[in-house]
Write a protein that binds this DNA or RNA. Structure first.
Lengths: 195, 195
DNA sequence: GTCTATAGGAAGATAGAC
DNA sequence: GTCTATCTTCCTATAGAC
C-alpha cells in the first residue's frame, strides 16, 4: 500500500523540517510518487500530519510497553537504566522520536488542540506507569518511604533533561549528562526514602 | 527607529510560529508598517531571523549575568532557587525565552550552522558559570568533596527538565516538577559529597 | 490509484515614485 | 524610509484522462 510509504516519508520530513517547513512535493519525492497522488490516501496536508502524529505516538507507546514487559520483575534502578539506554538507540535511529518531541513542544498553531488531545494522555500514562513501578519498589522494601508520585515526577524531570540533550546534541553528550546526573539523582531518591 | 519594532514583532511571531510558520506580512502588520519596508532595515527574512537570534541570546546572557551578580555571595541552594523562580517569570512573560528554546532545539534547516555558532558558546558559558559556583561552594566547605563539573552537568539536566515543562505546560506544572525534583536532587548532591 | 495540467493564492523579494 | 505595484516562485489543492 502506498499510504504507508507516504506516512513514513512525511514522518521523516516533518521531524526534521517541521510542519510548515515541509512541502507535499518533498514528501511525494521521498515516497517515489507524484504530489497529487497523496490526495488519493489523505485528505490534505493537515490530515496527513495528524495521522502521522497518531501513528508515531501509538508506535512509541507500543515500544515502551514492550520494553517494560520484557524487563519482568527487575529492580527499578536496572529498569530505568535499560530505559535510558534504549532511549538513546531509539532517538538516534528513529525519526519518530524526534518528531514526537517536536510536535509536543512546538505544534503547528492551527492543529494545536488536536495534537494536545494525543500528547497529554500519552504523558499521563507514562507518569502513571512510572508511579506504579516506584510503588511496587516501595512495597517490596527496596526503596524507603518516599512519595511515589513525587518520585515519579522527579524521574520524568530527569528523563526530559537528558532527552533534550540527546535531541539537541546527540549520543555522546547524552551519556555525559546521564553519567553525571543519574548517580546524584539516585542517591537523592535513596536519601529521600531514609528520612 | 523602526528596526527595533520590526525585531520585536519578529521575535514574537518566530517564537510562537517558528521560522517557516511566520510570514513577513504578519511581522509587518504587527510592527505597523507595510511588508516592503522591512527591506529598508534587513536584507531579507534570513537576515532578520539571525539578527533576532543574536539579540535574544545577548539579552538573555545579560539578564542571567545581572541576576547572578545581584545575588552576591549567597549559598548555592539559594541561588539556584532564585534562578528557578526567575526562570518562571522570564519564560512566562518574555517571548525571547521561548524563542531561544525553539531556535536551539529546532533551528530552520538552512540556518542551522549560523545558529549553532550562537547557541553553543552560550551554553558553554552557562555550564562554566555553574561549575564555578559549585567549586566555590566546595572550597568554602558548604558542599562535600564532589566533582564540580559533574555536579554542574547534573544541575543543567535538572534545569532543562523543568524548563521543558515550563515551556510545554506552563507555570503550575513547572512548580509541580520543581517541588518534586529539587529536594531529591539536592539530597543527591549532599549525599554525593559525603562519600 | 496514478498521472499531467492547472487553478488560485500567498510567499519572499524588487522597482521606483514620493 | 515608506509606500504601491509588481515579479517570480512555490505552495496546497482540484480536474479529469488513463
Amino acid at each position: 500500500m502506498g499510504a504507508d510509504q507516504i506516512r513514513d516519508a512525511a514522518l521523516m520530513y516533518f521531524a526534521s523540517h517541521g510542519y510548515e517547513g515541509t512541502s507535499l512535493r518533498e514528501i511525494a519525492e521521498e515516497a517515489g510518487i507524484k504530489k497529487p497522488s497523496i490526495y488519493a490516501h489523505y485528505k490534505g496536508k493537515e490530515d496527513l500530519f495528524i495521522q502521522v502524529v497518531r501513528y508515531a505516538f501509538e508506535q512509541e507507546q507500543r515500544n515502551l510497553l514492550e520494553l517494560f514487559r520484557k524487563q519482568g520483575e527487575a529492580p527499578l534502578q536496572e529498569r530505568m537504566k535499560a530505559l535510558l539506554i534504549w532511549l538513546n538507540e531509539e532517538y538516534s535511529s528513529n525519526p519518530a522520536a524526534k518528531f514526537m518531541l517536536r510536535v509536543a513542544y512546538f505544534p503547528p498553531a492551527s492543529l494545536q488542540g488536536e495534537i494536545m488531545d494525543i500528547v497529554y494522555p500519552f504523558l499521563d500514562r507514562l507518569e502513571r506507569g512510572i508511579t506504579r513501578l516506584i510503588q511496587r519498589e516501595i512495597a517490596e522494601g527496596k526503596l524507603g518511604q518516599l512519595d511515589p508520585q513525587q518520585a515519579a515526577i522527579a524521574l520524568m524531570t530527569l528523563l526530559d533533561g537528558v532527552i533534550v540533550e540527546l535531541l539537541y546534541a546527540g549520543s555522546k553528550p547524552y551519556f555525559r549528562r546521564l553519567e553525571a546526573a543519574w548517580p546524584i539523582f539516585w542517591k537523592g531518591l535513596e536519601a529521600a526514602g531514609n528520612e
